[in-house]
C-alpha cells in the first residue's frame, strides 16, 4: 500500500500532482468527454457538423422499432455462444501441455503457441478471408480434397438446404445462410495463445502432492481435470469468459473486414457495433448512431454489474 501522508507533508509535496495531471487530462479529454458527448448527442438529430436539432427521445423510439438493430442483437448472442464454445480448445490445450512430463517440451510448446502471435491480427484476418474465397480459397480445396464436400452435397440433397452443389464452389461469405457457419469456423482450431498461457500459469500453482494423492486414489484423467485442474483455473476461466462476452458484444472489426459495412449478404453478419459504425460513417446519422451506441452501452453495463454480483473474479 501507498504510505499514508499528513496534510502538512502533502502540502509540501504538492509537486507530486504534476505527475498525474497529464494522464488525467488525457483520460478526461479522450475518454470522459466523448462518453458525455455521446449521451448528449443521442438526443439530437445530428449529421456530424455544426447544425444539430434537439429531438428528445425520437432517436431511442426509432431504435426500439429498428428491426436491423434487434436482429443484430440476436446475431451477436449467437456469436457469444459460438465464442464460449471456442474457449474449450484453449483450456484443453493448457491442461494437456501441463500434463506433459518434460519441462523442456512444455517450454517448447509454449513457444510454438506464441509463434502465430507474430502475425498481426489483421493479417490473420485477411488470410482467413483468403481461406474462405470460393475459387482460390483453401477451405474449399480442403473440403474437395478430403471428400467432405460430397458429403455436404448429399446432406444438402436430403435436407434441402440449397447451399452446397456438386459443381459450384461453396460461397462461404456470399451465401446469407453460410455467414454464421463461416463465423463459427473462423479461427479454427480456436486456440488463443494468451489464453493458454494464462491457464498454464494457473495450473502451475497446483502442488505435486495433490496429484500424488489423486494417483493413490486411482483417479482417472478426466476426473483429475474436473476436481483438481478446473477448480484451480476457474478464476482465469471466469475472467476470460467475462472479457470474451463483453468483447464480442462490442466488437465489430471482424465483421467489418470480413463482410463489409452492411454485414454481408442479407445483413446476416450485422452486429450492434457495426450498425452504429454504419449509421455514423456510412449513413451520416451521427445522432442516431450515438443513440445506438448508448443502447449497446447500457447492455454492456448491465452485464458488467451482473457479472460483478454473481460471477466473482477474485484477484
Amino acid at each position: 500500500m501507498a504510505f499514508p501522508i499528513s496534510r502538512q507533508k502533502a502540502l509540501r509535496e504538492w509537486k507530486l500532482y504534476f505527475l498525474i495531471v497529464p494522464s488525467l487530462l488525457l483520460v478526461c479529454t479522450f475518454s470522459y468527454f466523448p462518453a458525455a458527448s455521446a449521451i448528449y448527442h443521442s438526443f439530437f438529430d445530428w449529421a456530424g457538423g455544426e447544425t444539430k436539432q434537439l429531438i428528445g427521445l425520437d432517436n431511442f423510439k426509432r431504435a426500439f422499432g429498428d428491426q436491423v438493430l434487434w436482429g443484430s442483437f440476436k446475431t451477436v448472442s449467437i456469436l457469444i455462444v459460438f465464442n464460449l464454445f471456442k474457449m474449450i480448445p484453449s483450456i484443453a490445450m493448457a491442461v494437456m501441455i501441463h500434463r506433459v512430463k518434460s519441462d523442456r517440451w512444455q517450454y517448447f510448446y509454449r513457444v510454438m503457441l506464441v509463434v502465430p502471435m507474430i502475425v498481426p491480427s489483421l493479417v490473420t484476418l485477411f488470410i482467413w478471408k483468403f481461406f474462405f474465397d470460393p475459387n482460390m480459397g483453401v477451405l474449399n480445396k480442403i473440403l474437395d480434397f478430403t471428400g467432405i464436400k460430397s458429403l455436404l452435397v448429399s446432406l444438402d440433397q436430403v435436407f434441402g438446404w440449397g447451399l452446397f452443389f456438386e459443381n459450384a464452389p461453396i460461397g462461404w461469405l456470399s451465401q446469407p445462410d453460410l455467414i454464421l457457419p463461416s463465423l463459427f469456423i473462423w479461427g479454427f482450431p480456436w486456440i488463443g495463445a494468451v489464453g493458454v498461457l494464462i491457464y498454464l500459469a494457473g495450473l502451475q500453482s497446483i502442488g505435486q502432492e495433490i496429484y500424488e494423492a489423486a494417483e493413490l486414489d486411482g483417479v482417472g484423467p478426466f476426473k483429475k481435470f474436473l476436481y483438481i485442474e478446473l477448480p484451480l483455473i476457474l478464476t482465469q476461466v471466469r475472467l476470460s469468459l467475462v472479457l470474451l462476452v463483453i468483447g464480442t458484444l462490442q466488437g465489430y472489426g471482424l465483421q467489418l473486414l470480413l463482410l463489409g459495412e452492411a454485414g454481408g449478404a442479407g445483413g446476416r453478419g450485422m452486429v450492434p457495433g457495426l450498425w452504429m459504425y454504419n449509421k455514423a460513417f456510412v449513413a451520416g446519422e451521427f445522432g442516431y448512431a450515438c443513440a445506438v451506441g448508448m443502447i449497446l452501452f447500457v447492455f454492456i453495463l448491465m452485464l458488467t454489474f451482473l457479472n460483478n454480483k454473481y460471477v466473482r473474479v477474485d484477484k
Binding site: S31, F33, P34, A35, S37, A38, H41, I246, L249, Q250, G273, M276, Y277, A280, F286, A289, C290, G293, M294, L296, F297, I300, L301
Partner: peptide, 9 residues
C-alpha cells in the same frame, strides 16, 4: 466502461 459508444463523438 465500454468504449464502443465513444467512437462517434
Amino acid at each position: 466502461m465500454p468504449g464502443v459508444a465513444n467512437i462517434v463523438p
